[in-house]
């Protein structure tokens, strides 16, 4: 599904990714762990095409297509979804209008007619129930006045609406208490199909208790330095990253 080769990227003048190689097959869940500033968020932003990041070397292909030649929205239409670490407020744009624009843009890219209003609202209602998100949040502007937990749940709701094939969860656990974490993770699990792949970025084991990874990668200083099974995440939880750094040295 996703193949990253020798990826180098920078923000401003600072090189952050220094040669990342990563292959994700259909239906696989990969956890990406690492110290602060190691490049985890950079990697996810580069995959979804954040214009603030510049790729200087390497390639990313997604289902055979060259992602780097596609703009952000084209990548979204291809089925890539990112759950943001800090979802932004967009005052004045209602959740409903926002979702309608997103869903219909995707349908248009797929050569489909835009949804009728009633159909759209019906889908909204169904998906809302699925992730247990309050109707009153839908009448507000995007993320405006949402609590930390509501924002994260809203991300999963949008994922439900857009039915992506590759989900990137960028520190979805940050700022969530145990109950909220469970609800969000369960929502995610309900949505995924056998074909859905995921990249889960986290500092902690606890999210991985709910979303079981097939593969765990450790990213340090812009490179994947270690790859293992779920047991690796457990080991990091207990021992931190220092032992990996020592191995490298």
């Amino acid at each position: 599904m996703l193949e990253i080769k020798n990826l180098h990227a920078k923000v401003g003048d600072k090189e952050i990714l220094k040669g990342v190689n990563l292959t994700i097959r259909d239906g696989e869940t990969h956890a990406l762990m690492g110290t602060n500033g190691a490049g985890k968020s950079t990697l996810s932003n580069v995959i979804v095409g954040n214009p603030s990041y510049e790729v200087t070397e390497g390639s990313i292909t997604f289902n055979g297509k060259d992602l780097l030649t596609m703009n952000t929205e084209e990548r979204a239409h291809a089925g890539i979804f990112m759950s943001f670490q800090a979802p932004i407020e967009i005052p004045g744009v209602s959740m409903t209008n926002f979702m309608r624009a997103a869903v219909n843009a995707r349908r248009e890219a797929q050569g489909k007619e835009p949804l009728k209003s009633t159909d759209f609202l019906k889908i909204m209602r169904e998906k809302r129930k699925l992730v247990e998100i309050d109707q009153k949040l839908m009448n507000r502007s995007v993320n405006e006045g949402f609590s930390g937990g509501e924002r994260k749940r809203n991300e999963i709701f949008q994922m439900a609406m857009l039915e992506p094939t590759l989900c990137i969860l960028d520190e979805t656990d940050s700022g969530l208490d145990v109950d909220a974490l469970r609800i969000v993770a369960e929502g995610f699990n309900k949505l995924r199909t056998a074909q859905t792949s995921a990249i889960v970025i986290t500092h902690y084991q606890r999210l991985l208790d709910y979303i079981r990874p097939d593969v765990v990668h450790v990213l340090i200083d812009g490179k994947i330095v270690k790859t293992g099974t779920a047991a690796l995440a457990q080991q990091i939880e207990e021992q931190g990253f220092d032992w990996i750094k020592e191995e490298l040295a």
Binding site: P51, S52, E73, A76, H77, F81, I90, G92, A101
Partner: peptide, 26 residues
């Protein structure tokens, strides 16, 4: 707001449409 534009584009909303939405909201 560049961050808002990016967020919308990540959801698949084309840039011109995202800009229109933001102007409208404004």
């Amino acid at each position: 707001d560049e961050a808002a534009l990016f967020y919308m584009r990540q959801r698949g909303i084309p840039e011109t449409e995202a800009r229109t939405l933001l102007k409208n909201a404004f």
